[in-house]
Design a protein around this nucleic acid. Structure first.
Length: 260
DNA sequence: GCCCAGGAGCCCG
DNA sequence: CGGGCTCATGGG
């Protein structure tokens, strides 16, 4: 029996509990300790008042770029490095060289590109301070964020939802994979970002806290259970999943191991 | 060694 | 408008 999106939210919440996104360095138990441990703990389950300062908001914005196509642990190491070097600050990030910035965020991968992206974000924030962004309607906000080179739809929506606490549903690779496997959307052709976002937003009233929790729950489920190679034996949704046991979804059309 | 991770831009047809 | 390529570290 196919599951409804609304029920998916209830089941995931019941199974995994509140996720406490977006994590912040200052909430890590090593927040004031420059020695990074093996895993991160900066979550704040059930507390939707966070971020509660411009510093928090800014950290989430930077983190959303560092996290692009990268495991959060690697992104967080880079964020922690910026913190250690006292660079988590708009003026500091503006004044340092691109090279020094790139070297500081090395662990997040794509560090040359991400350094440029962060510089672009800094320039954007100098023209559009956080206090101004908070006043803007979501649609206008989204357009202006996406106009920054290096901020695409997912990063823009992450900033809107998790940094600025405005209601918009974040679509990522996990959400797409899960939606396909559960049969919310067709596999072929692949659903667009907009299609998936419209679908999820059509199910609920516009609610930033709910969108926050739901997306975080999807990530939790997909990271540990509905992986690229799904662990269906550990899944709470097997009765609802058309893809159960059947081949681990698909493969990319042709994979070239192009070594230079 | 291979595979993958909380994407985006660019270039092409 | 969509597919393919590039960017890159660190963990399993």
């Amino acid at each position: 029996m196919p599951i409804k999106i609304h029920d998916l939210y209830s089941l995931l919440l019941k199974k995994y509990g509140y996720q406490g996104w977006w994590p912040l360095l200052r909430l890590n138990d090593y927040g004031n300790n420059p020695t990074l441990r093996g895993h991160y703990t900066g979550y704040h389950p059930g507390n939707y008042e966070i971020p509660s300062s411009y510093e928090d908001v800014f950290e989430i914005m930077i983190g959303s770029i560092l996290a692009q196509n990268t495991s959060w642990i690697n992104a967080e190491k880079a964020l922690n490095e910026l913190y250690k070097r006292n660079l988590l600050d708009i003026q500091k990030l503006r004044d340092i060289s691109l090279e020094y910035l790139a070297e500081s965020i090395r662990s997040s991968g794509y560090y040359n590109q991400k350094a440029i992206k962060i510089k672009n974000l800094i320039q954007f924030l100098e023209n559009n301070p956080i206090s101004i962004l908070l006043e803007k309607p979501v649609e206008e906000l989204r357009k202006s964020l996406i106009s920054v080179k290096g901020i695409g739809p997912e990063t823009a929506d992450s900033i809107i939802l998790y940094a600025l606490k405005k209601p918009i549903f974040v679509i990522d690779a996990y959400t797409k994979r899960l939606s396909i496997r559960l049969g919310f959307v067709e596999h072929n052709p692949e659903p667009s970002y907009q299609e998936l976002q419209d679908l999820f937003q059509s199910v609920f009233d516009s609610d930033a806290n709910l969108f926050n929790e739901f997306h975080a729950l999807i990530v939790q489920h997909c990271v540990h259970v509905c992986e690229k190679k799904p662990k269906c034996e550990n899944c709470l949704l097997t009765k609802n999943c058309p893809k159960i046991i059947i081949q681990p979804v698909k493969r990319k059309k042709s994979r070239k191991t192009n070594s230079k």
